[in-house]
Write a protein that binds this DNA or RNA. Structure first.
Lengths: 224, 224
DNA sequence: CCGTATCCAATAAGATACTG
DNA sequence: CAGTATCTTATTGGATACGG
């Protein structure tokens, strides 16, 4: 029995001092990085995570959350009253994994097989707005944008060539965008018609925001 | 059979427009990123990959290489005569995945569970030298370092706060380092005694190179 | 030596139903 | 809503054997 346990644990370990290998032991399991991604803009409940990750099953989500918690990347907390519900929240170190999410996402956007029309979560599309912004064109812009995806409110401050995203809403935004995250992705990256989303505010700003985002050139497929 | 195939392929897809999710579909399988890592400094043979990735079995390596090839990240080529052996080589897009390897590695180095004394491949330790260098201290250094790990020769040019690594050897290096990659890692990150490795050349330079590398502060373990 | 193919046992993932 | 329990399928790893 002792032996079995050793074998079981040893099997899934890479036995490699390289940080990359250890990183894969921490967040390399299926779904793990996507769960962490959903926590990057603040705490989420179990059922929200389930809804944001189409296809994950409850038992796998439970397992991933337990593993991430045990490893120090996620914490279980209770929201302050009157909500008082249990939520999952990334620890400081967990939040530091955001560059991994970004780097991987930016790299994969070059994939010839990438399909940007699939469903996407609100957190994902907002994180991608942080990553994929055209800093050159955004340099002289300064504006406040509010987003509403279902019941989730986010606000972005476009400033100095970057966009800072956080939970909540700005009291006097220049632009409000609402609708399905998937539709906003279609407008932003697919240059789909604006009537896929609801918006109000500065139309010219909206056009210029959309112009800040474009997908990179595709990498070639193998020739054979 | 048709149905089975569809089900099988569909099951492993995240159905998520987020680039990160697609990235995981490309290089998220077990071992995939480590195989790609080993190709970051030039082509490798099947048996070299097997030796560099302790614990991977031949059939899994075959499968990962085939998948990476099919996805356009790895190419099978033949070395020019007289060698004429088949090797695996990262495509240009595959090489662009290096920031993923680096970001993941740097992040995971903060793990309280990271064990830097495990075995490590030559490519890994050299890539980590690129990632983990203290740019501040290295800013005014300029030197050529040769490395020999078994039969593999690499050279590094320390210059402008960074170190450029490539295959081969510099004809007149300031320092030559040879031995097991694991031993060099122990000297570099664990500040282990120098007699673990073989070296010749500028002893003062060697000391200063070692001083360019240190592991980051550990993240806290969960308190429970 | 360089892989590939096949078989087997152990896990991990997925689907579904169910409980506090 | 927040997970467990259970069952089925897929993937992994290890061993071994086989062809170039």
């Amino acid at each position: 029995m002792q032996l079995e346990k050793v074998t079981k644990e040893a099997r899934r370990v890479y036995d490699d001092a390289c940080g990359t290998a250890h990183g894969l032991e921490l967040i390399g399991e299926r779904w793990a990085l996507l769960v962490l991604r959903e926590l990057m803009l603040g705490p989420r409940r179990f059922s929200q995570l389930r809804a944001d990750l189409p296809g994950i099953s409850a038992n796998v989500l439970t397992q991933r959350l337990n593993e991430l918690e045990e490893r120090g990347l996620v914490r279980r907390t209770r929201l302050p009253p009157p909500a008082s519900v249990q939520v999952y929240e990334a620890t400081e170190w967990g939040l530091e994994a955001e560059p991994i999410v970004q780097t991987l996402g930016r790299w994969a956007a070059r994939s010839p097989r990438h399909d940007p029309t699939l469903p996407i979560s609100g957190v994902s599309i907002l994180l991608s707005m942080r990553t994929m912004i055209d800093a050159e064109r955004a340099r002289d812009m300064d504006a406040h944008l509010n987003f509403r995806f279902g019941d989730d409110l986010y606000t972005g401050h476009l400033h100095g060539g970057a966009i800072a995203i956080s939970r909540g809403e700005h009291p006097a935004p220049d632009l409000i965008i609402a609708g399905e995250p998937q539709a906003w992705a279609g407008v932003l990256y697919g240059k789909a018609p604006l009537d896929l989303i609801q918006w109000s505010g500065d139309k010219d700003l909206l056009d210029r925001v959309i112009d800040l985002y474009h997908l990179p050139e595709k990498a070639p497929l193998p020739s054979h």
